[in-house]
Design a protein around this nucleic acid. Structure first.
Lengths: 229, 229
DNA sequence: AGGAGTTCGTGAAAGAGTGAACAAACGAAT
DNA sequence: ATTCGTTTGTTCACTCTTTCACGAACTCCT
């Protein structure tokens, strides 16, 4: 299967495809069948030329004078992002954050499903979060291999994040999403994305301070998202 | 007070300052007093020249042939980011995510404190999360103004995110951190950063798919973080 | 004091991302 | 069939970011 992705998509564009995708799904829900780059740009709060350029990395799926067919474009973006299948995901850490993630419906609605949650804390083991029973961290490798998991989420405290990463790597995982505020050290072929809540707040703090000092310098065109590189 | 920030710091550099800051705090904890750009780069998993250039936006705080004094640099970064003070933050939405955020110690340890959590769900009101009692959303403006809050966090479901944003803006908030998977529409002078968990996973999905198709194309130098713009 | 060995700060080049502008291609209307 | 208005796909100029490379400045050792 799969006409493989024609070329590699630039990081910046890649980060916007999921946004377009979500908007398209919403539009489809509203029975909209066609959409122009202009409309899509408006909904995504970006430039229309950017939308067209981003979409052109996927192929030539628009019709001049008309726009894009919502259903078709939705399918193409999904295919490109590998969202035809539902990816099994394992969560390491069953604390507040781990539980919230496991219960987060947005994950299961958008191409992923939680197949395991592990922790080292005996009091958490056996409890059920997000529909799965929490297991001991020692069982991580077994879960990963049995369920063919390639994406792992680290939701442990910072001081345990590296060992969680090591365990995930050893279990054979290829991609890690890290919520702990730590820089992980992993083999080169393992892909890591991090989300650092405090970091984002600190950036807001900077702009708030600028504002208070009279230097009105909100980054031109607000609505930033976190970037990984 | 405050020698105001000399110039505006580029977004890319700004996103790394909190990382350096965290590393410096850790080093300080380990009684390390001096650090070179090379070491800092290693710990942050970036290029040493980048570290030096990033830090040069703050001023000339290094000593050639020696490196940077940990304590001093820590202070300077904190000052630049506006982290001398502890910023009051309000959370809208007391669901799984809102609760996790309110309980997340990393927030309070790094320059912020939760002064309010609001929700519209009557069953949640009155419960205590993260040390504060959940209040009704109608009281948002009052909380914001009484506590001089300028940063708000949206942790509502997607369909209520825009009204949460509107309420925050009306209450007079200047910066919003949005966890709901929606593009918010806000006045130009309000700064928004978004964190979209599913979006990040979808990017990982893309790379996993590439890997499976034989196109080994992990973005050169892994460990990306989310970017907002 | 002077030389050897470090390490910073920065200029300049290379690379990536953005946005304006326009030709090509389409539908609709006459 | 032709014309007209629309919208895409892409080129080009510009900005932002990253990386290299090197002079300047500091410490330590002799």
């Amino acid at each position: 299967m799969s006409e493989s992705p024609r070329r590699k998509i630039p990081e910046a564009a890649l980060g916007r495809l999921p946004i377009y995708l979500r908007i398209l799904v919403d539009l489809s829900h509203d029975k909209v069948t066609q959409v122009s780059s202009e409309q899509l740009a408006e909904l995504a709060a970006v430039n229309a030329a950017k939308v067209r350029k981003d979409l052109s990395y996927l192929g030539t799926y628009g019709t001049r004078g008309v726009g894009y067919e919502v259903q078709f474009l939705t399918y193409q973006i999904q295919r490109e992002l590998g969202l035809n299948q539902s990816w099994p995901v394992v969560i390491v850490g069953a604390g507040n954050l781990g539980q919230a993630l496991a219960n987060f419906t947005g994950i299961s609605e958008r191409g992923f499903h939680i197949v395991g949650v592990v922790d080292k804390d005996e009091t958490k083991i056996g409890t059920v979060v997000g529909g799965v029973r929490v297991k001991h961290a020692d069982e991580l490798t077994q879960i990963v291999q049995a369920k063919h998991v390639s994406i792992g989420i680290i939701a442990t405290p910072a001081q345990h994040a590296q060992e969680a990463a090591d365990a995930l790597v050893k279990a054979g995982i290829g991609s890690i999403m890290n919520f702990a505020p730590t820089v992980l050290s992993v083999p080169r072929d393992v892909n890591v994305r991090k989300v650092d809540l405090a970091l984002e707040l600190q950036i807001l703090s900077y702009y708030e301070q600028c504002r208070n000092n009279g230097l009105r310098s909100v980054p031109t065109g607000n609505q930033s998202d976190s970037v990984s590189a």
